[in-house]
Amino acid sequence: MITASHPRAEGGGLSGLLLVALPVALLIWLVLWPVLQAVVGTVYFPGKGFSLSSYAFFFTDAYSLRNLWLTLWVTALTSALRVAVAMPIALYLRFRSGSIAALVQSLALFPLFVPSVLVAYAFIRVLGPNGIVDTVLVALGLPKLPTPYLTPAGPIIGLVWERLPLTLLLLLSGLGRVSIASVDAARDLGAGGLTIFSRIILPRIQSSIIVALAFNVLGLFSAFTLPYLLGPASPEMMGPYMQRTFSDNADPLNATTQAVITFAFCAAFGLVYVRAIARGRRGPA
């Protein structure tokens, strides 16, 4: 796989393996083995032999492809928006203290404690048709806004809101490793804000950004509740589409095929993170 050359290996293989043994055993027993069974079930049929027909169907079916495309598109847009919104807040929180900063942090982390179903309810009550925004606008004698409910914008707004704290937490924890002293020193040398950000801060929090993006992709590919409650009926994101194929169409073969394809996309993004970690292991540049 990824070759991580190791000029300064710190420990032997045995102690490493012992340390990871428990989680890895759990993983193999309760996740990898069932996943393997599911994957094999989509290509091997007892008595009939190997067949890739369900994959061929997916990649020739315009409807399925449109759903996959929508998922990729929503994932890209939502992840970008989350990082774009969370980054300024994280920078602010890292370099400021005091009661206002504490309040900002508490507010920004709050969505962490709100389950998706409630996000959807709150969304409908606020931005939905004749929700509180419309109510206020009408009371002020202004026209109603076109509501994002049941349009593609609906789930995107909901998803950014819901997972903003996760992105923020990861960026913030990464920023914890940027020492204020180094930023001050750079400033004394006359570096501008942008230079400090790109030269000093960004390299230190790279792995946090990548892990944040990786979690975003994972979460969005399996997102179910918000796309289903707030989005349009079609095209569907992969989460609701798989669920519908599985339970309403009672078609486990195609549902699992969709799951494997989704899984492959997530694994590709996961690989980026693993590569970054492997690169980092060689020691900071």
């Binding site: 993983l27 996740v31 990898l32 069932p34 996943v35 599911a38 994972l218 979460g219 590919f221 399996s222 989460g239 798989m242 669920q243 599985f246 339970s247 549902a255 699992t256 799951a259 989704t262 899984f263 997530c266 694994a267 996961g270």
Partner: peptide
Amino acid sequence: LSVQAFPKFGL
């Protein structure tokens, strides 16, 4: 990754 990346219904 497979902990989260593989949809639950398949398992």
